[in-house]
Design a protein around this nucleic acid. Structure first.
Lengths: 290, 290
DNA sequence: CGAAAGCCGTATCAGAAATTTCAAGACAAT
DNA sequence: ATTGTCTTGAAATTTCTGATACGGCTTTCG
């Protein structure tokens, strides 16, 4: 495994560039392989050796010799490199897709913002509409009680959700994730309850335990998590994954915030008939006069 | 939107779309596979069955059943389809990244997301770089105590900020905005303290009062608010406004979240020498073993 | 012209990957 | 409780792919 060699191009340049550069040094068969690969780069290299060789009009061993000469230990490694290159290339345009970009703002801020925006886009595109709608229906069911919970950081999001839903409808609760604080409340959780759990990586034991306990009691569990899915997924009825990776030592919860706000908006609209008077009442309580 | 729509998919369009559509008909294992695939679409499906299954946390046969259910005769055919789809998509850059596209996602969700993203862009573009940097410097000053506070909804953001900064540095506090809860704490607030207040429209009396009291004691006030500026602006030393308007009965705090996370990232980087051991210590406490 | 060197493809093998089988477990309905 | 259905993963099986050895062929150079 001397993978430390020069296979991975340091600059953003692709393998294709190196192939063009070394083209003269190839044998005739290798040139045929190289030309095929470049003409359909990199897809031509993604099926089997036999297929690749046949399209190039050469034999399988020649194709093997070709990739070996490029510095790969074998065909699978060659394909892996192509896939990774492709993935990187496909993802970057999204981040750079801000047109009028000469944005000022601290450089740290604007590049961070780009990453967050890319996350939001990716998050929305990967949500199943039915999943989202099903959750909206669930949270709009006034016969059910709703409980929000989350971990160290995501707990704040759970609170954020709770503080909105509390106004839109009744029977909305926030549960601290520490077992000592929910053990006794668990007796009230049953088939008609909905648990909305927030949990992203460095998944938190107590949130998992809470969700599993609630599921065991027959409650419906809704999970907001990262794309790698918290273990809570095992007991969750519905899952909304959000992308969280940003250039920071921390994960970003902006995607979870987006989903939360979208849920709040949708449920508010759905329950508008009953939500409106509630919101007005709250407004009146805050401004007793005027 | 009937003209100039996508030319990419002549057949049943993207497989991803179909998966989202049939999501609720899947078994739990299939859902895990589906979520993995969608979260890294389509690259997650380009490895071997074993790899794919392992990442999804299911067994190889379950992964096989998943692709079979999608209508493919086997895994290789499934992968071939993914590759072809990818190639088609890459060849027609117009097909993707079109801003106002009729993308999937619940319509409510995607239009909501578009508004949020527009807000984030506008927010970043209107931040004065010096302002952002000055705040980072302020929060990176370890001789100062930092206090976060916020209102009904924004309080959750203040907590979110606090839970991160608490790990990055010492002397970080959260203050409840109810006067009864901060009156006595005010005697400890002085010239060396920093108050970070979150307040958006329907500006909240108690947050304003708290901020003004702190300012009167000589504390430095940092304000995160909406573009119309909370009254706190009069006593604030630094202001970061975020756009909040979305198609909903509520305002969106996603911009505030973005700014918060950007501040956390910047300060963490700035204080890395001392933040790193702190973060490691926290990690060790959470995982006493391993 | 002859010989050496290198290049290429056929045939074959080893091993990995996909697929099928099957039994255990979960769940719902009765 | 009990049965039947559905789901799942471990293990056995099959298929197929990537890799290699070897001999023929072409090219090159003395």
């Amino acid at each position: 495994m001397r993978s430390g060699n020069n296979v991975a191009s340091a600059d953003g340049s692709s393998l294709a560039e190196r192939i063009r550069h070394e083209m003269d040094a190839f044998t005739p068969s290798e040139k045929r392989a190289a030309h095929l690969l470049l003409s359909h780069y990199p897809f031509a290299g993604l099926d089997t050796v036999a297929e690749f060789a046949s399209r190039a009009g050469i034999s399988a061993p020649s194709a093997l010799r070709f990739v070996t000469r490029l510095g790969f230990s074998g065909f699978p490694e060659f394909q892996k490199h192509l896939r990774e290159e492709l993935e990187a290339q496909l993802l970057s345009p999204l981040a750079k897709a801000s047109p009028g970009d000469k944005s000022h703002g601290a450089p740290a801020l604007s590049s961070f913002a780009e990453a967050v925006i890319a996350n939001l886009t990716a998050t929305v595109e990967n949500i199943a509409p039915t999943e989202f709608d099903a959750i909206v229906a669930l949270l709009s069911d006034r016969r059910r009680h709703i409980h929000f919970t989350g971990g160290r950081f995501t707990g704040a999001l759970a609170r954020y959700a709770e503080s909105h839903f509390r106004i839109v409808r009744s029977d909305v609760h926030f549960i601290e994730s520490q077992p000592a604080l929910w053990r006794d409340r668990m007796i009230e959780i049953g088939r008609k309850d909905v648990i909305v759990s927030y949990d992203i990586r460095r998944y938190q034991e107590d949130v998992i335990a809470l969700s599993e306990a609630a599921a065991k009691q027959g409650a419906t569990v809704v999970l907001l998590t990262d794309p790698w899915l918290s273990p809570i997924a095992r007991v969750a009825r519905h899952i909304l994954p959000a992308h969280v990776t940003v250039p920071s030592n921390w994960d970003s919860s902006a995607g979870l915030m987006l989903l939360t706000e979208a849920l709040v908006a949708a449920v508010t609209k759905h329950l508008w008939e009953t939500a409106k008077p509630r919101m007005e009442a709250v407004e009146r309580l805050r401004n007793p006069k005027s």
